[in-house]
Design a protein around this nucleic acid. Structure first.
Lengths: 163, 163
DNA sequence: TATTGTTATACTCTATAACTATA
DNA sequence: TATAGTTATAGAGTATAACAATA
């Protein structure tokens, strides 16, 4: 199947005047996976802020909470590597989450340099509430695709990445 | 560029609380399209900077050049809407591209507020050189997928978005 | 000496308000 | 008055360097 045609076809050779947004030739960018991925990611992030604003969750904090929930004791360095955040930038977020009472830092007994991250009950409650919004949010974002296509998209993204 | 495994890869077994990066449970995030899209986009952008650094192109300037090339006379407002950039941020980039001699601004005859953007020969040459790198770059980024899967991914992304 | 976490800081990207010149 | 473009500026997000504590 070929990429969906534009809302307006390429306007013939050239009018010397300006183009309106609807009649632009965007085919080159539509065939550019990096550009389309950026637009898709923007759509998801904008939708996320709308959907999760009431809980105060951002895409970054949602991911942080989810990883700590599923991996209690995970150290900041692993978390940073996984989420593709630089450690100093993650530390700033962790400081806020800890001072707000959502997470707790324990020093490892076996290596006192290491930190073990845990959710507090307050943090666990927050991510549980967030998780309840996740399915309808994803469904809304992926609405133009059938359920089979949604699964295919997710599978292809996973295969593209070194997980 | 991939998150490097922590060097603590000693054969010593881990304590119950400590998680190494390799043994983390990431299934929740792997099932989260927004997170996977972010990782995929990061991969494409990092690869882009490596591949196009010699030309001085960034993902943003590449897209700007491509749209002006295919739509000479396009106004900044349409370009911004299309690329999901705020107009003031686009203007800054356009100022640099113009003072470097890659693009030209013409005032519209019919509406003297409006600006028509064009590539200079220097700009046309640059995007032509960039376009030659595009196919091998995309192939490299999408290497884990078959060609049919690459087409499917692109089609699904296009269908997800309001083009 | 090397590693984990942390602080400080700079740079890029993005967002908002206000100004200009035309309409 | 409204619109296209522009400027100035503030805020996120992201990057590197250096330090403290521990190994």
């Amino acid at each position: 199947m070929s990429p969906k045609p534009l809302s307006g076809a390429k306007s013939a050779p050239q009018k010397s005047a300006q183009q309106t947004e609807k009649s632009l030739d965007l085919r080159a960018l539509q065939r550019t996976p990096g550009f389309m991925l950026r637009l898709a990611q923007l759509k998801f992030f904008e939708g996320f802020y709308e959907e999760f604003a009431a809980l105060g969750l951002t895409p970054a904090t949602y991911a942080i909470f989810a990883v700590i929930r599923d991996n209690p004791g995970v150290p900041p360095s692993s978390l940073a590597g996984l989420l593709r955040l630089r450690l100093p930038n993650l530390i700033k977020i962790l400081n806020e989450l800890e001072s707000s009472g959502f997470i707790k830092r324990n020093r490892s007994k076996s290596d006192r340099r290491a930190v073990e991250l845990m959710l507090t009950p307050k943090g666990a409650k927050l991510i549980a509430e967030g998780a309840r919004l996740t399915e309808p949010y994803n469904r809304k974002m992926l609405a133009p695709l059938s359920e089979a296509e949604q699964r295919t998209l997710l599978e292809l993204l996973n295969r593209m990445l070194p997980f």
